[in-house]
Design a protein around this nucleic acid. Structure first.
Lengths: 230, 230
DNA sequence: TTTTGTGAACTAGTTCACAGCT
DNA sequence: AGCTGTGAACTAGTTCACAAAA
């Protein structure tokens, strides 16, 4: 009945790279840093200090250093970070130094839009396939040319094409059913656009984008603002 | 910082209601609670305890109580919360007890998909208009019938139609330009799908959904898992 | 009883500030 | 000099645990 209180496991971890769970806030920021570095490299900047990076992109210098230092000593004291090097390290940390294939389940408006979304292609992601259960969609392609397959072929195509990430863009009612199929196909990382909480095994990483929650949160802000305007 | 303490609510909650900034994590959860209550009401449940709510939707009971108690005393000790009542209170807190009109800027794949996204319509949001700068898109409609206007008419239509929320679905390159137009039109709440950080005045609430960051964060998880599998 | 509402305790996350390297 | 990497201090967020209410 009562949860036994964890007695503080000693976590030595002297030499970095321990596998204690990295916070999602941190991994999100790594991705942001990489984007910033891409911009800097495009602008011909060779080296950047955490301070300059923070100032330019409205971040916190200490946080940048901490985030990076967690994975290694990438900086040079007195100099900063070499843009090219740090970019390479970040790409490696984020696992972007290999081609990642993505399947989108749900070839409705949203699924089709995501399939052709240019941002996904940029950092080495390849939208390999769309999946749907509607017979008249199967066999078609998105405008950008991503083929639509039958959802029943998911497992087969995931294996065959080395797909490692799934994006869920199906109606709420079928979301759990679809995610069970995705999990059964062996995929370990899922980006979900369906509303509501989905259940996945612990070894599957589920990240949800809830558009309704986002909008309602904005509505809250407006409601508060209205009544407190001076 | 402002210090005006105002008892603002028209109806419920006797004490509480200081205006210190409510965390976004909290407002997001309020939206989640509302969705849970909708489900419960649909299932004919009349009353629910924080514990039961937590168990059923995998939340924490104390957190539910804290979140709610912040806005008033909505519960009944020994009983729990009346589903219907709490739903009404949450809708009022979230500002959903009025029709909120939304404009989507960018009538590309993503903008069109969002315009017809059923989840937005559910809780009283009305997608009033799409905006684009391409002449051949202006005058058309989304599949669901949302008209596409010229971006130059944004300010006029925002005022005329009482639009209070904008959704940004334009390419990265034009995002800041577009958001400046949106801000100039008087809109105070923005949901942004463009990558990168955008600048807005302090009185404008900007909420960003960064699809690239989400995917790269998943990639990180996969990269870690691969190398630490036992 | 049961269950809320809430201070206290705890945990996570951020920022400071400085030793130490270049 | 300049800047990183990092313990310490601080702040935010969550969970516990219990007094009080129905």
């Amino acid at each position: 009945m009562k949860r036994t209180n964890k007695p503080l496991p000693p976590r030595p971890s002297k030499a970095k790279q321990s596998l204690d769970q990295v916070s999602e806030l941190t991994t999100n920021r790594l991705s942001v840093y990489l984007r910033c570095l891409n911009q800097l490299e495009g602008a011909g900047v060779r080296t950047i200090s955490s301070r300059a990076l923070a100032d330019q992109f409205h971040l916190n210098a200490a946080q940048i250093r901490k985030d990076l230092a967690y994975f290694g000593e990438f900086g040079v004291r007195g100099v900063g970070y070499y843009v090219r090097d740090l970019k390479r390290h970040l790409r490696q940390i984020l696992g972007l130094d290999r081609r990642l294939r993505v399947a989108i389940v749900g070839a409705g408006n949203l699924g089709l839009a995501l399939a052709d979304y240019p941002g996904f292609r940029q950092e080495g992601f390849e939208i390999a396939a769309l999946f749907d259960n509607l017979k008249d969609k199967v066999g078609q392609r998105s405008r950008g040319g991503v083929p639509i397959h039958d959802i029943h072929d998911l497992k087969k195509l995931v294996r065959h094409n080395g797909i490692s990430i799934a994006v869920i863009a199906v109606p709420e009612a079928s979301a759990q059913r679809v995610i069970d199929l995705v999990v059964a196909s062996g995929i370990k990382a899922v980006l979900n656009f369906s509303p509501g909480a989905l259940q996945v095994p612990r070894d599957v990483k589920l990240k949800s984008v809830d558009l309704t929650v986002s909008l309602e949160s904005l509505s809250f802000y407006l409601a508060r603002g209205d009544s407190e305007e001076s």
